[in-house]
């Protein structure tokens, strides 16, 4: 058994190399997946948010001009029911908050931001989470702006789900690979063990005692080594011609 273990040690570095390569592939694939999902989802979110902000901005004009803020709030409340949208606020041309969906109040980070800036920004709001906020001008900004905050934790959740599915797949492939590697190592180690046993027997008791094991009949490298050991043993005992076995 100890001998078999020794033989398997020959494969340890190979196995380690295979597993390392496998790990590298898995990690790089995951990283690529995260990057791809994150990029695509973020772009999609920002794009959707901008569309929503523009839709609200376009449909708010009449309501704002009629000073009907209850109707405007009702409109905003319907949009905030869309998955991923966590807050919406509308300011007038002076930056006054006319409508919003914040509870219990407008966060300081939002209050201190420039309401006329409609560029996409990332916000971390204490107690609420991380958001991508996009804006859209109402009547080119002369009537105010609409801002929509999308929850980035939803993106993170989708990434986690994508990575999770990938991990399941890679884990399955890895387990199959491990069993296959063990089987192949055992397959390769079996004739080597036979060769080792024959060489030990040859060294201990000489060619006569070692007999004619099956390993001598093999056509592969193990068989050639066995015949080489037999030749060397015979040379040492002086009863073999000087020609090496093929």
């Amino acid at each position: 058994m100890a001998e078999a273990t020794k033989v398997k040690k020959l494969f340890q570095k190979t196995l380690f190399g295979v597993f390392s390569l496998f790990g590298f592939i898995a990690l790089s694939m995951s990283a690529l997946c995260i990057y791809t999902v994150d990029t695509h989802l973020s772009e999609e979110y920002v794009s959707n948010s901008q569309d929503i902000a523009k839709t609200i901005a376009d449909s708010s004009v009449d309501i704002m001009l009629n000073r009907n803020l209850a109707a405007l709030q009702s409109l905003v409340d319907q949009f905030v029911e869309i998955q991923g949208i966590k807050y919406i606020y509308i300011t007038n041309e002076t930056g006054e908050f006319l409508v919003h969906t914040f509870v219990p109040g407008i966060p300081d980070e939002v209050l201190s931001a420039d309401p006329m800036n409609t560029a996409s920004v990332e916000r971390t709001l204490p107690g609420m989470g991380d958001f991508v906020e996009v804006g859209a001008p109402i009547l080119a900004g002369v009537a105010g702006t609409v801002h929509v905050g999308m929850d980035t934790s939803l993106i993170a959740l989708k990434i986690q789900r994508a990575i999770g599915r990938q991990i399941y797949l890679i884990s399955g492939v890895f387990l199959v690979g491990v069993f296959a590697a063990i089987w192949l190592v055992n397959l390769a180690a079996k004739p080597l063990n036979a060769l080792l046993a024959y060489a030990v027997e040859l060294a201990r008791q000489g060619q006569a005692a070692a007999g004619e094991p099956a390993v001598l009949e093999r056509n592969d490298e193990v068989g050639q080594l066995a015949r080489l050991f037999l030749y060397m043993a015979r040379q040492n005992s002086g009863d073999e011609p000087a020609k090496a076995p093929a």
Binding site: A70, A71, Q73, S74, V99, T101
Partner: peptide, 11 residues
């Protein structure tokens, strides 16, 4: 109240 009712009164 964070809805149309609250906004109506706020306004």
């Amino acid at each position: 109240q964070a809805d149309a009712y609250g906004r109506s009164g706020w306004a």
